[in-house]
Amino acid sequence: SRHTFEINGERWTVEGVSEELKEILRAAERASNDEAERLLRLALKLI
């Protein structure tokens, strides 16, 4: 499935992501810059 999210003013669209990964991306959208970066690094390990 496709998911579009915005982090630090940048929009991203990813396809074929699991519900778990979507949850991480949604958390990154709400997080501070440092926390968002940490969550994105974690998410990339899952891809």
Rank of each mutant, 00 (worst) to 15 (best):
S1V: 11
S1D: 15
S1I: 15
S1L: 13
S1G: 14
S1F: 10
S1Y: 09
H3Q: 07
T4C: 14
T4G: 03
F5Q: 00
F5M: 02
F5T: 00
E6C: 14
I7F: 05
I7L: 06
I7S: 02
I7N: 01
I7A: 02
N8S: 05
G9V: 02
G9R: 01
G9Y: 03
E10D: 07
E10G: 05
E10L: 11
E10M: 14
R11I: 15
R11C: 15
R11P: 06
R11K: 13
W12F: 14
W12G: 00
W12Q: 01
W12Y: 15
T13V: 15
T13Y: 11
T13N: 05
V14H: 02
V14M: 10
E15T: 08
E15Q: 10
G16D: 11
V17T: 05
E19L: 06
E20L: 08
E20K: 08
E20D: 11
L21M: 11
L21F: 05
K22L: 15
K22M: 15
K22T: 12
K22E: 14
E23M: 09
E23P: 01
E23T: 02
E23W: 07
I24W: 03
I24M: 06
L25H: 00
L25N: 00
L25V: 02
L25I: 06
R26V: 10
R26G: 07
R26C: 03
R26I: 10
A27K: 13
A27Q: 14
A27T: 09
A28L: 12
A28S: 04
A28T: 03
E29L: 04
E29H: 07
E29N: 04
E29D: 05
E29F: 05
R30V: 14
R30G: 14
R30K: 13
R30S: 13
R30W: 08
A31K: 03
A31Q: 04
S32L: 07
S32F: 06
N33C: 11
D34V: 13
D34F: 10
D34R: 08
E35C: 04
E35H: 04
E35F: 07
E35A: 06
A36F: 06
A36D: 01
E37D: 12
E37F: 08
R38W: 09
L39R: 01
L40D: 00
L40C: 04
L40F: 10
L40E: 01
L40R: 03
L40N: 01
L40H: 03
R41Q: 12
R41P: 00
R41N: 13
L42Y: 10
L42N: 05
A43E: 01
A43C: 10
L44V: 10
L44N: 03
K45D: 10
K45M: 13
K45Y: 11
K45R: 10
L46H: 05
L46G: 04
I47M: 13
I47Q: 03
I47G: 03
